[in-house]
Design a protein around this nucleic acid. Structure first.
Length: 426
DNA sequence: TCTGGGGTCCTAGGACCC
DNA sequence: TCTGGGGTCCTAGGACCC
């Protein structure tokens, strides 16, 4: 007998979190906004009923929301992460095999236990009573169907938040009700093309010819068909692999035209990305830098470049140097940039690699250097020291940011020794 | 002027996810 | 006027090799 897979998914997660902090939001429609307060990324049921779509730009629906007394909130990711940890802990305490899939959902391997529905119900109750977050549970033989079950559990009145499609005679009915675009792994483009072939719902896709779909679309679409037939193709992943890339990207509230403004943005993005990379003990083999104009305008320009380094590195000054070289290559004057970013690719475990490349003695010096930078960060503040990482002391001294914003700080004579240390490494 | 065939590796870009 | 951010995986096609 096949193991049953459950998908536990928090309802309107960010909104539910906000309602935990502020009870007065319980009775009001609520939306939570994206980073720049540009888009709506979480909606309460009331807002969904108004017809407001996921990722809809706020300006398009602002008057509608206000007319309905909607609470419009900026996001607070740290809080949501904390709530998420509490939810996952409850699942972990009860279930051995759990795969945390995202901040608000987890797959559970329920084994071959009968009464899987009861298990799901208990988990739902326990999360509601302990944390105060409403969740829905979908149960099936495969992850793809569990996703569908979960979606129906959320929307159907009868289901009351739990739907078991493991061995259900309603399976095909459920599939028939599901549009291809709502299937996990079938996005907007593919679903449109499927529609052109007359395939509109999940049942039709399930009965389609696998080899034809594989050839006409992709292996992923073919895999999805098998999953819909109850054949497990997407494995259960108990542990997370190390990240393969780390990105820091932002949209600008105003267009950037000036060379130095964009350059400083790239430096900042790189610093943030490298910080996270080092925190995870990883190093990068390549770096991508991109800068985009407004993608909603017809003369949209996307400039990007990937710089393949000679060897893996987690040396900050090196990576910052590459980022700037990339920037020089893609910057085009006369363009109005609306978004830019830095992506570190091909990440591997850091220490081992560096040790191998440097040898023990050099590695030890390198480690001390990095420690010194951490100390300097502490003394002078991140935003000051990040400039030193880029081009060494010369850049720091010549930087107008340093002069303007941090002029009251003492000049770090301590760094002098370290820049020459930097040079020796080069 | 004619202009192999098969294999590997790499990368940019597409598509998808939450 | 205003349009998110951080990821993963696949694939077509170019470069290169014998």
């Amino acid at each position: 007998m096949e193991n049953a897979i459950a998908l536990v998914d928090c309802n309107n997660f960010y909104v539910s979190c906000e309602r935990l902090f502020d009870k007065s939001l319980q009775k009001r429609p609520v939306v939570v906004l994206s980073n720049n307060d540009g888009c709506i990324i979480s909606r309460s049921d009331e807002v969904k009923k108004m017809g407001v779509k996921m990722a809809e730009p706020l300006f398009k629906v602002k008057s509608l929301l206000e007319a309905n007394n909607t609470a419009i909130l900026s996001s607070n990711l740290e809080h949501y992460c904390e709530i998420s940890r509490q939810v996952m802990k409850i699942l972990r305490d009860d279930i051995d095999k759990i795969e945390v899939y995202s901040i608000d959902e987890a797959f559970l391997d329920l084994g071959t236990a009968d009464k899987v529905c009861e298990v799901g119900f208990q988990l739902k109750e326990s999360i509601w009573e302990t944390v105060g977050i409403p969740v829905s549970v979908g149960i099936a033989k495969t992850k793809t169907i569990a996703k569908i079950a979960n979606h129906l559990a959320k929307t159907s009145e009868k289901a009351k938040g739990i739907l078991d499609l493991y061995d259900s005679r309603y399976l095909d009915l459920a599939l028939e009700k599901t549009k291809v675009g709502d299937i996990w792994g079938i996005g907007r483009r593919i679903s449109k093309r499927l529609n052109n072939f007359g395939i509109d719902d999940a049942l039709q896709l399930k009965n389609a010819d696998v080899s034809w779909i594989r050839k006409e679309f992709s292996v992923i679409a073919g895999r999805t068909i098998l999953e819909l037939r109850g054949i497990k193709c997407i494995p259960f992943e108990l542990t997370h692999d190390d990240k393969k890339s780390i990105a820091h990207t932002r949209s600008f509230s105003h267009s950037i035209v000036n060379y130095y403004d964009l350059r400083n943005a790239i430096i900042y993005f790189t610093t943030r990305a490298v910080e996270r990379m080092r925190r995870d003990g990883l190093c990068a083999k390549s770096i991508t830098v991109f800068a985009l104009t407004n993608r909603f305008k017809p003369d949209f320009v996307a400039n990007s470049i990937t710089y393949e380094s000679i060897y893996h590195s987690d040396l900050r000054y090196e990576i910052n140097g590459w980022a700037l070289e990339c920037f020089e290559k893609i910057f085009q004057s006369g363009l109005e940039y609306k978004k830019a970013g830095v992506i570190l690719n091909n990440l591997v475990k850091s220490e081992k690699m560096t040790k191998r490349l440097f040898g023990d003695e050099r590695f030890e010096r390198w480690r001390k250097l990095e420690q010194t930078i951490d100390e300097l960060n502490f003394i002078y503040g991140r935003d000051c020291v990040k400039l030193a990482r880029v081009g060494g002391l010369d850049f720091w001294k010549s930087s107008h940011i340093f002069e303007n914003e941090n002029a009251n700080l003492p000049k770090p004579s301590k760094l002098d020794g370290n820049t020459s240390e930097f040079r020796r490494f080069l």
